[in-house]
Write a protein that binds this DNA or RNA. Structure first.
Lengths: 132, 132
DNA sequence: TATCCCGGTATCGTTGAGGTAACCAGTATC
DNA sequence: GATACTGGTTACCTCAACGATACCGGGATA
C-alpha cells in the first residue's frame, strides 16, 4: 500500500491559483498526486484536499473515472470501504503535472512580480480617449 | 516580421475542449501560438481565433499583459495600429504547450474512448441503494 | 436504545468566465 | 454627407463550477 498522506501536502494559501496551467478541473491534479503512491480511500483523500466538500470530491472522482483516469473499487464490508486507484492513463498525467510544477518553480515568481508591478500603475491610457 | 496567420490553424470543432490541460484562460494558449513567430495586430489575431469576440480578446490580452506574457505597442498612426508581442516569459509557456500537445497526441484518444465506453453503461450502482 | 463510522445524496446559493449585441472616436475615402 | 476601417468599450445575460449545509442507510459498537 502506501504511507499515510500528509494532511498539509497542499497549501490552500499557495499561489498555485495564479498558475496559468490547469490539469482537468480544480482538484484533478491534486487527486492524481494523492494517488501517486497507491490506492486511497474516499475519506483518506479528504485530508490533504483541505476544504473539499464530499459532493465536489464525488463529482471529481466520478469525472476522473468516466475519463479512465482512476478506477473505483467498492468492498462489501462494513463500515463500507471504497478505494480509488490511478490507471496508466491517469498516471500519464504525472509528467504534465511535473512540467507544470517545473514551470512554476522557474517562472511563476516573474509572473507574480509582473502582476504586482502592474497594479501600481493606474491606467496607461490605451488609445487617446477624449471625454468632453 | 512573420507570415500571415493561417485562419484555420485552430479547429473550433476539435476535441481540445475535452483535453484535461489548460494553459491560462480559454484562449491564452492559442494567443501564445499565434504570437510564436512575431508580433501581431489585434485584427490579425481575430482570424485564427475564430469566434472570439473583441471584448473577450481584449480581456485575454489585458490579462496576459498584466501577467507579463505579452507587450502591447500602440503606434500613433491612422488607422490606428496596435501590436502584441510575446515576452520571454510568455515564450516560456511554449514548452508547456508542447508538453500538453504531446500528451494529447499520445493519450487523448484513450481518454475519449474511455468516455465513450462509459456512456454505454447506464449506472454501475455505486453502493447498494434501497428505495422502498 | 443510542451513537458512531463510511461513503456518499439532496438542495440551495454564489460566483465568475465567457458570450451577444450595440456603440464609439478619429481619420480617410467615396 | 455617407461610409469604412481600426481597436476597442459598454450593458446585459447565461451557464456551469464550486461551495454550504443538511441528511441518509446499514452495521458495529457501547
Amino acid at each position: 500500500m502506501a504511507e499515510p498522506l500528509d494532511p498539509e501536502m497542499f497549501d490552500p494559501v499557495c499561489p498555485s491559483s495564479a498558475m496559468p496551467i490547469q490539469i482537468g478541473d480544480k482538484w484533478t491534479a491534486m487527486v492524481v498526486l494523492c494517488l501517486e503512491d497507491g490506492a486511497r480511500r474516499f475519506t483518506e483523500l479528504r485530508g490533504p484536499l483541505r476544504g473539499i466538500t464530499p459532493k465536489v470530491l464525488t463529482q471529481t472522482l466520478r469525472a476522473m473515472e468516466r475519463d479512465g483516469l482512476v478506477t473505483r473499487t467498492a468492498y462489501d464490508e462494513n463500515p463500507p470501504r471504497v478505494e480509488y486507484e490511478l490507471t496508466d492513463l491517469g498516471r500519464s498525467l504525472l509528467i504534465l503535472i511535473d512540467a507544470a510544477r517545473a514551470w512554476s518553480r522557474d517562472h511563476l515568481p516573474a509572473l507574480l512580480e509582473a502582476r504586482r508591478a502592474h497594479e501600481s500603475i493606474p491606467r496607461p491610457a490605451l488609445l487617446k480617449r477624449s471625454r468632453p
